[in-house]
Amino acid sequence: MKTLQNNIFLFVLLGVTLALNFALQRWLDPYYYKILVDVGIAIILAVSLNLINGITGQFSLGHAGFMAVGAYVAASISVFLVQPWMQGAGLSGDTNLIAGGILVGVAVVVGGICAALAGLVVGLPTLRLRGDYLAIATLGFGEIIRIVILNTDQVGGARGMSVFPTPSAMGGAPVKSSFFWVFAWMIVCVTIVARLAHSVKGKALFAIREDEFAASTIGIDTTRYKVIAFLTGSFFAGIAGGLFAHSSTGFITPGGFDTQKSIEIVVMVVLGGLGSISGAIIAAVVLTIMPEALRGFSNYRMVVYSLLLIIVMLTRPQGLMGMKELRWPWRAKAGG
């Protein structure tokens, strides 16, 4: 009961999201709706990478690889299991939003779990590497994942994979990652990462970043915590991947999960402030909206990002927010 009370705010937030979902689907221009969904996915990616890179200080350059695992697993479940079943049962994504949403939700979760397992496989051997070696090793793993997908014909190889079948085959519109599902996952991701990082035990993640060796001399099993960070981070990267696969066009290619994608997420985390969750959120929002808002900017987007990276490192290496967090004003004193 007490537990429920402690989380009441969370449930209210989820309820609001659900209510908003119907309002937005009805009245919001599809173009803006798409951007909103993109923003939600970007936040999940940035916050989950922030757990690994910012909070735990383990510089990973392979986040897009885990996203790819989640995307392809979720897409495969959707295409090979869920859709044939729905078709057989005469269900359409249009009319059975909830049922379809739950089925896709399952696909997304399984994608997340597979990504977490991939994170474990990557993490266990590489986590004893330090700094830049870890960066290169994770970059390598990300590339290996991408190349394996590229060579798997069942999921389309280099041609890519279409998650949504033609409408006629579905007998209606397919189930998409709706605003609700994306933002519900975003809320879960932010909550878990924030509570983990600021809990008594989870503070150990910051300790590892600050001084791994000193942390181990006060009884902190640093490997275990690094694995937890990696598992959690890659799980949410997988979730983001699954949601992405089911968003807008529903078309994924291995090329969409290359090192450049990983670096884009890194840019969000660095600009927001390594270790600051609200910083990562702000950066994810701004960097997702900016290219859409400024027409003709897309050519210069990466040039601007790269300059920002250099300038931020030279002038304000702690990023926009440093390690500070924005808090709900009414909770600022409580320090929750």
């Binding site: 990466m302 790269s306 490192m313």
Partner: peptide, 26 residues
């Protein structure tokens, strides 16, 4: 960044790399 944490240096290096690649594509 000579006396900055090595991570800052690494991120800057990534920035320089991206800059050359994408400025070059213009």
């Amino acid at each position: 960044l000579r006396n900055a944490p090595r991570l800052s240096l690494l991120i800057t290096a990534i920035g320089v790399s991206l800059f050359i690649e994408y400025a070059g594509q213009l």
